[in-house]
């Protein structure tokens, strides 16, 4: 019958549509990351690695506040060496975060950064950061975890202060489960 054929064709198309939309739901994950990268939203830092040295803009000073937070259940002591830095745009600035593992077992941590205001993220260039890698720490050990960054001279003039916050997550179990070769889903944790 004609209707039966028309029905079958329509059902196949509509089912196809819903399968596509199921896929689209998952496609939103990378799309969302791409969108954040392109627009510099969400305080995600995308500029990393070595940089050409430029002359610092001494006429301008930017306050950089550093914050270290433990995620729930993370027992480490974790804090910045200096909580407030004054930086000239273009100047290479080195600082560090101090970490101490008070527990009786070796642990691995991952720091997740966030920048506020979000628009400043694209002007913050991290040459080296402890957040690039998982940070192992033996039982009772202490470490200074380095951070080397430059603030771009193009930083909009209305921004006078930037907050750079790190949240420390305990990934010991996940590391053990993945045998140290974890490729996290949904984008790399820069």
């Amino acid at each position: 019958m004609d209707t039966a054929r028309a029905n079958r064709r329509l059902v196949i198309r509509l089912l196809g549509g819903s399968v596509l939309m199921f896929g689209f739901g998952f496609a939103l994950v990378p799309l969302y990351d791409v969108f954040c990268e392109v627009t510099g939203l969400n305080g995600k830092i995308t500029r990393t690695g070595a940089i050409e040295t430029v002359e610092a803009d001494t006429s301008r000073q930017v306050r950089v506040r550093l914050i270290g937070i433990n995620n729930e259940g993370m027992p480490w002591e974790f804090s910045p060496q200096q909580s407030l830095l004054t930086v000239n745009p273009g100047e290479m600035k080195q600082t560090a975060f101090q970490a101490y593992n008070p527990t009786g077992r070796s642990m691995v941590a991952q720091a997740i950064p966030s920048v506020s205001p979000g628009v400043a993220a694209q002007y913050l260039h991290k040459v080296n950061c402890f957040c690039f890698n998982a940070q192992p720490l033996q039982a009772g050990a202490r470490a200074d975890m380095p951070l080397l960054f430059v603030i771009d001279k193009e930083l909009p003039p209305e921004i006078h202060s930037i907050t750079l916050s790190y949240t420390l997550f305990d990934i010991t179990e996940a590391q053990a489960a993945d045998n140290g070769s974890a490729e996290p889903d949904g984008g790399s944790p820069i």
Binding site: N71, D170, S188
Partner: peptide
């Protein structure tokens, strides 16, 4: 063990809301 919404693994809780 994925990390779609888990910040420690590189995911993002705000993604969930979107």
């Amino acid at each position: 063990g994925t990390s779609f919404f888990n910040a420690a693994g590189g995911g993002d809780p705000v993604l969930f809301q979107h």
